[in-house]
């Protein structure tokens, strides 16, 4: 395989992994369910996007690459809706967000 493609793929995969790491750290550190939803809908989805991109550039056919890329919007739609449903339910139940003043929390 072309070395340039391989390097590009490796770089994209590593960026993806970094976002996953950030997402997990956020999930462990953020104070309440709303803030944790933020990390899952942003950091993790972006991580998956980069991983899919990294795998798509080294796919053996254009169609395979398209199939991989098709997965991303599906996950985005699902995760936006699920996070909305969870946040809405949490709000209905009266789970109040933990608020801070921006200096520390």
């Amino acid at each position: 395989m072309n070395v340039a493609i391989e390097l590009l793929s490796a770089a994209l995969l590593l960026v993806g992994a970094t976002f996953y790491l950030a997402g997990t750290v956020g999930l462990l550190r953020f104070p309440d369910v709303y803030a944790r939803l933020h990390t899952l809908t942003k950091a993790d989805n972006l991580g998956l996007g980069f991983i899919i991109l990294g795998l798509a550039v080294q796919a053996d056919s254009l169609m395979m690459a398209c199939k991989l890329l098709l997965i991303w919007p599906l996950v985005l739609m699902a995760s936006a809706t699920v996070s909305y449903s969870i946040a809405r339910r949490a709000d209905e139940m009266g789970i109040a967000p933990i608020s801070g003043d921006g200096d520390s929390a």
């Binding site: 899952l40 991983i51 969870i86 339910r89």
Partner: peptide, 25 residues
Amino acid sequence: TLADRMLAALLFGNTGVGVLLLLAY
């Protein structure tokens, strides 16, 4: 809270898909 438990559902669609794709390769 139970809402935190439901976060597991979000992890499915995301990390599970990522692991499967990486395993494919």
